[in-house]
């Protein structure tokens, strides 16, 4: 049997907001350890991997591994109906019928909303996403997630509006990370220097560079990843010319959300 409870819907609402516009379907794998979710976008440019350990839930019971594919657009719609302080229960019954039930209960007025989602295919087992040692990456940038979101917004407002193919070039050079994009009649560069101030120790921008690196990405994807800021105060961007870039948000000791993105090969 699978039975999970979260006393505040916020965490799950934020997770869905952070993935549902880019990924249409995800593989949800529940095991004794927790929930692992993976999804790839239809153009196979981006991949998302989420881990929420059992400790992230107020109640977690999963006595048999269960894997289910779920439609994220439908789930996001349902979760938009949930208030932040609603109690969420996730249940799948003993007979493993291909349905999972999400219940939202308002602690104030006792109103209960029940949503059943049919499985939409599944991988059957969690996908094996390779983990690469830190040494494989040429540069690593850690910054406040709100700052990263602000940068993405600025770049998007300057880049050709309506052009889905706006490219952002991320370059790391010594103690600077540059974000560059081209608009219709000009270019825009945002330079972030390494900072670590005494008065704001929790909001540093840290740059670790082994080699200079400069990679092009789809701005649309990066902009969408920046929604992970609701889940964590910090984002870590790992860059390599030989591997997909990783944008990682750690979720308060209980897991993470990692977005992987292929760089664009410029003609």
């Amino acid at each position: 049997i699978l039975e999970l409870r979260l006393v505040q819907a916020t965490l799950f609402k934020n997770v869905l907001e952070a993935i549902s516009d880019l990924f249409s379907k995800a593989n949800f794998d529940f095991s004794g350890t927790g929930l692992e979710l993976q999804a790839m976008d239809t153009s196979h440019v981006a991949l998302v991997a989420l881990l929420l350990r059992a400790e992230a839930f107020n109640h977690y019971l999963c006595d048999r591994d269960l894997s289910m594919g779920l439609n994220l657009a439908d789930m996001a719609k349902a979760f938009r109906c949930a208030n932040n302080d609603d109690i969420i229960t996730i249940k799948a019954e003993e007979d493993w019928s291909d349905t999972v039930t999400f219940t939202f209960e308002s602690p104030e007025d006792g109103e209960i909303s029940i949503f059943d989602f049919d499985f939409v295919g599944t991988n059957g087992v969690p996908l094996e996403i390779p983990e690469f040692p830190e040494s494989e990456y040429q540069a690593k940038v850690r910054m406040p997630s709100a700052k990263f979101m602000r940068i993405c917004k600025k770049l998007s407002s300057f880049g050709d509006s309506g052009d889905r193919d706006t490219v952002v070039i991320i370059s790391v050079d010594k103690e600077c990370v540059n974000f560059f994009t081209r608009g219709k009649t000009g270019t825009s560069t945002i330079v972030c220097r390494q900072t670590q101030t005494v008065d704001k120790p929790k909001e540093p921008t840290l740059i670790e560079m082994k080699e200079q690196v400069s990679l092009a990405f789809d701005l649309r994807y990066m902009n969408s990843f920046s929604k992970g800021s609701t889940l964590s105060d910090q984002v870590t961007i790992s860059l390599s010319s030989n591997l997909p870039a990783v944008f990682e948000y750690k979720i308060a000791e209980t897991g993470y959300i990692r977005y992987y993105m292929l760089p664009r090969i410029e003609e």
């Binding site: 790839m40 991988n123 996908l127």
Partner: peptide, 14 residues
């Protein structure tokens, strides 16, 4: 599985 194949292809694309 097809998904695992897609994933392996993804990591070999760079």
């Amino acid at each position: 599985t097809p998904m695992q194949n897609d994933l392996e292809e993804f990591f070999s694309m760079v």
